[in-house]
Nucleic acid binder design. Structure first.
Length: 246
DNA sequence: CTCCGGGTAA
DNA sequence: TTACCCGGAG
């Protein structure tokens, strides 16, 4: 029996099928991005930070220039703040650059100049939150660390046909749990995490998802229900309550 | 033109 | 919960 899920009764077989179909697609369709050609945690960290709130096409040039000037944690830690900001100019969210600089110094001081592989240690660094910590831990160190960001929230909410707003804490808990559930027990979490993000980015797109070419369509509850255009549900409009009668 | 999304920190 | 900053959407 292919696991149905009225209330998320997904069995082990479902996750195995999920990973097999996902990875077959990813091996064939992934973009050859520079930060995927490396397992250097520093490079992955820089790319993930730049990719927050900034799109791939823009990041490419900045990424290359930044790493040429600051090839290592040590080089960045020793840099002048103004030069870091200069290399960041045009990307916006300059706090990201300041945090990067500060965190590099924290890594030198507390971790001997190498980024830690542990999620909690990563998250204690400036500018590294739950997502980025999971990304570094899984991509660079292949730790079994879940990640959740805009693309995977959309993908997962469709797969599970979640029909309540994403920002509810209850929904976030469910999505983070699912993000962990899809990870293999031994190795390969980094590849799975990269693959779900790539699928969300290229196929399970916001407005017109390409369900006909989605490797997970047969596992997708929203697709099964014809709800892929209705999910994720739009965020509740700010409602003003009428005070008139009070 | 205005509005809105999006990781992190406060 | 909001600001940060920019690009994409309306």
């Amino acid at each position: 029996m292919p696991s149905q899920n009225s209330c998320d009764q997904l069995d082990a077989g479902w996750f195995i099928t999920f990973r097999r179909q996902l990875m077959r697609w990813y091996r064939k369709h992934q973009r050859p991005l520079p930060w995927r050609q490396t397992d250097d945690a520093y490079r992955i960290w820089i790319s993930e930070t730049m990719l927050q709130q900034t799109q791939v096409a823009t990041v490419l040039d900045y990424y290359s220039r930044f790493l040429q000037r600051f090839p290592t944690v040590l080089a960045l830690a020793a840099a002048d703040t103004q030069e870091v900001l200069q290399l960041w100019a045009g990307l916006g969210y300059y706090r990201r650059a300041r945090n990067l600089h500060q965190a590099a110094q924290q890594v030198v001081e507390h971790h001997g100049g190498s980024l830690p592989s542990n999620v909690d240690a990563l998250q204690s660094l400036a500018g590294i939150g739950r997502y980025t910590a999971g990304a570094i831990a899984s991509f660079a160190f292949d730790r079994r660390a879940p990640i959740l960001e805009a693309n995977t929230q959309r993908l997962f909410s469709r797969l599970l046909a979640i029909q309540i707003p994403l920002q509810l804490s209850q929904t976030q808990r469910r999505l983070w749990q699912f993000a962990e559930d899809i990870l293999p027990s031994r190795s390969g979490s980094g590849q799975i995490n990269q693959a779900v993000m790539e699928l969300g980015s290229l196929v399970c797109t916001p407005q017109t998802p390409s369900c006909s070419s989605c490797p997970l369509a047969d596992l997708c509850a929203a697709y099964r229900l014809g709800l892929q255009l209705k999910i994720p549900v739009p965020k509740p409009k700010p409602s003003f309550q009428s005070v008139v009668h009070v």
